[in-house]
């Protein structure tokens, strides 16, 4: 029988970690209760540890909002298409750069790393997007940040850690470079692909600024823009009296706290659910990618 020895250090770590996770869990729990609360309870404020009165009104309103569904559609399109394409092309770039025999490899690596520190700025990027005719298209949400130098370097490092011998034996068996990349390298690189894919998915899911800048057509607004609007509108109307200067104008209804909470749940739940499944790859991928550079 293995004796588990009481260790003070361990106890402290457990207590601290429990407290840390409590700060996150309580907030989510409060928000969940808030989303099921009618407005007269939600606006009272204070911590809600259980729903005092339950209602589905907030969710009915959120689900009844056309923009939420349009947002879902647009977010899914940009997330799926963007992630798949970006992952594939980043992997191709990283693979090439991971090969020692690639001519001027250091120069090309530095050339790409350079973009991590210097960017063209908002307006030049906008002008490029506009000149390419991409305004108001899904491409404007995907192409401007298509290859992330950071992801590329992490992937390159991972590919470098794979033994050369596997590829050599494949070459002897008659496989071409592209086949090796597709059938050997990619399947061997699941941890790093999963890690980068997770970053890309979360990035696409959460991003809003590019939509704000490039998209004017409201049917192409993504979920985060809709969520932002509901939350900002809700608080702005209360704070900014100049927006509705007279008492008569201020009588109009504002989005309630409960509605905001329901909205947050509807928009973040999918990504929260996906996270644990990818997490197991996460630690492995990032460790190998970063340490064996």
């Amino acid at each position: 029988m293995v004796k588990t020895r009481f260790s003070l250090g361990k106890a402290i770590i457990y207590v601290l970690l429990t407290m840390l996770s409590a700060t996150i869990v309580i907030a989510f729990w409060h928000l969940l209760n808030l989303s099921f609360s009618p407005s007269h309870i939600a606006t009272k404020g204070g911590l809600l540890l259980y729903p005092k009165e339950a209602t589905l009104d907030n969710y009915t309103r959120v689900i009844g909002n056309r923009y939420i569904w349009l947002g879902y559609k647009n977010t899914l399109i940009r997330t799926v298409v963007g992630t798949v394409l970006q992952l594939f092309f980043t992997a191709m770039g990283a693979y090439v750069l991971s090969k020692r025999f690639f001519p001027h490899r250091t120069f090309w690596t530095l050339f790409i790393v350079f973009t991590m520190f210097f960017s063209g700025g908002l307006i030049p990027t906008y002008l490029v997007v506009k000149k390419l005719g991409l305004l108001d298209t899904y491409a404007s949400m995907i192409l401007p940040g298509f290859i992330s130098a950071y992801n590329l370097v992490i992937m390159r490092n991972y590919f470098q850690s794979l033994p050369e011998e596997i590829e050599e034996s494949c070459l002897i068996d008659g496989a071409g470079r592209f086949r090796i990349f597709l059938q050997i390298i990619l399947p061997l690189s699941k941890p790093i692909l999963a890690t980068v894919a997770l970053w890309l998915v979360v990035g696409h899911w959460n991003s809003w600024f590019d939509v704000l800048i490039y998209i004017a057509d409201d049917t192409k607004f993504t979920l985060q823009i809709v969520l932002r609007r509901i939350i900002i509108t809700g608080s702005k109307e209360i704070l900014d009296t100049s927006a509705a200067a007279s008492a008569a104008e201020m009588e109009s209804v504002v989005s309630s706290e409960g509605l905001k909470a329901a909205c947050i749940y509807v928009t973040t739940l999918p990504i929260l659910c996906a996270y644990p499944f990818v997490q197991k790859f996460f630690v492995k991928g990032i460790m190998i990618g970063s340490l064996k550079g």
């Binding site: 908002l122 307006i123 906008y126 704000l212 800048i213 823009i225 932002r228 609007r229 900002i232």
Partner: peptide, 14 residues
């Protein structure tokens, strides 16, 4: 969007 009005407008003006 009001919260980023100036940023968005500046880009569009440019």
């Amino acid at each position: 969007e009001q919260a980023n009005y100036a940023d968005i407008l500046n880009t569009r003006l440019n």
